[in-house]
Simulated scan of single mutants.
Amino acid sequence: MNTMNIDAVDLNLLKVFEALHDESSASRAALRLGVTQSAISAALRRLREVYGDALFVRTGRGLAPTLRADQLKPVISEALNKCRQSLAMVNPATGNHEGRSVVVGLSDDFEMALGRRLMAEVRVRAPGLRLIFRQTHSQIVATALLERHLDLAITSGGFANRLLTRRVLGEGSYSCLLEPSSLRPGQTTLDIEEFIEREQILISSAGLIGMVDEGLASLGLSRRVCASTTHFAALPYLLKDTRALSTIPTHAAQAIAQLTGLTLLPCPLPMPRYPIELGWRTSAPPDPAVDAVREAIIGLF
């Protein structure tokens, strides 16, 4: 059993641990910290002695964390962030967050719709801060926040936990996205007959049934799904030069249409609106970096 105490540990090793876990590579960790790769290797040997565990094992894709390393990561990162916070308190008026990062959990539809604008807001509110966008959704977001894998999260629900605080940012709706060449000249709407006549692309983690299918079933109708994907970003490539359509959250449809030239039309099927919520840990201590990002997100709505 390792009986080493903090007096015998070089706390700079914790920065190396964080960099190795984030980068999954000794060479990238060295670049991040501005040291040599041999220094990283030496630090890793000492970390292994301290924690009595391999911590990172070599794979074909770099360094993979062990179970112990994954357990240590949120604890070590939180400790380092408290140290960074203490330094920011020396001269908070500078508003410089160099070296800090805030992890925001969101699905790729929110990332496409909000990511660029959030980057611009944070650049003004918290100069030097790095945003880390990490994929999540309502079924797993609470666990990710509580296990400190995320600092903040934007989802359509999932925060019903007494240890989490949530704020409703707005409501979401659905629109249809399709190739403009598949429309008649001047066409600005779809009727329900054309809607179900066209092949459709489903965005779903399971790839089988979506909310559109449930809505159509209530009317005694069904649609033909020609393909399913888990990522909204694939849609421009899947819809191009086809008559297919996809019914997706309006914020994502707007973002994709603006960048790709695809057309956005109202969905002819009555679809329920859904809440867009921001969540974070209730017990998290005040952190100027996280606060700045939270206020920037609220400002976007």
Score class of each variant (00 low, 15 high):
Ile76Met: 04
Ala227His: 03
Cys176Asp: 13
Arg123Val: 02
Leu87Thr: 05
Asn5Asp: 15
Ala257Trp: 03
Arg117Ile: 02
Arg134Ile: 01
Val212Thr: 15
Asp10Arg: 02
Ala43Ile: 09
Glu171Asp: 06
Pro127Asp: 14
Gly158Glu: 12
Met112Arg: 11
Glu277Tyr: 12
Lys73Ala: 01
Thr165Ile: 02
Tyr51Gly: 04
Ala120Lys: 07
Pro180Gly: 03
Val90Thr: 03
Leu118Thr: 08
Ala69Gly: 03
Pro275Met: 08
Gly220Ser: 07
Ser246Glu: 10
Trp280Val: 04
Arg223Glu: 09
Pro285Leu: 05
Gly95His: 03
Thr230Leu: 11
His149Cys: 00
Val124Met: 04
Glu121Tyr: 06
Gln135Ser: 11
Gly299Tyr: 12
Ile276Met: 12
Leu131Asp: 12
Asn96Glu: 04
Ala19Leu: 03
Arg68Met: 01
Thr189Gly: 04
Ala126Ser: 11
Ile203Asn: 10
Gly128Leu: 04
Leu11Gly: 01
Thr260Trp: 14
Gly279Ile: 11
Arg61Leu: 08
Gly157Pro: 07
Phe133Ala: 06
Ala43Arg: 06
Ala8Val: 01
Glu295Tyr: 07
Arg61Ser: 10
Pro288Glu: 13
Arg84Trp: 04
Ala142Leu: 03
Met211Phe: 06
Pro288Trp: 10
Gly95Ile: 00
Gly60Val: 13
Leu67Asp: 11
Val124Trp: 08
Arg198Gln: 15
Asn161His: 14
Arg32Gly: 02
Asp70Ile: 04
His251Ser: 07
Leu300Trp: 02
Pro236Leu: 07
Leu11Ala: 04
Asp151Phe: 00
Thr247Lys: 03
Met271Asp: 11
Ser283Tyr: 08
Ile140Val: 07
Ala142Asp: 02
Ala296Phe: 01
Asn5Leu: 01
Asp213Trp: 05
Arg166Trp: 12
Leu13Pro: 08
Met89Gln: 09
Arg224Gln: 09
Pro268Asn: 14
Thr59Lys: 15
Met4Asn: 08
Met119Gly: 09
Leu208Met: 11
Ala79Asp: 12
Asp53Trp: 08
Leu245Ser: 09
Ala126Pro: 12
Ser204Tyr: 13
Met1Ala: 14
Gly210Leu: 06
Asn81Tyr: 00
Pro92Val: 06
Pro180Trp: 02
Arg223Trp: 05
Ala88Leu: 09
Val103Pro: 06
Tyr51Ile: 03
Gln139Asp: 15
Pro275Gly: 08
Met271Arg: 09
Pro249Ile: 00
Ala79Ile: 04
Ile76Ala: 06
Ser228Cys: 11
Gly105Cys: 09
Ala42Asp: 13
Arg28Lys: 09
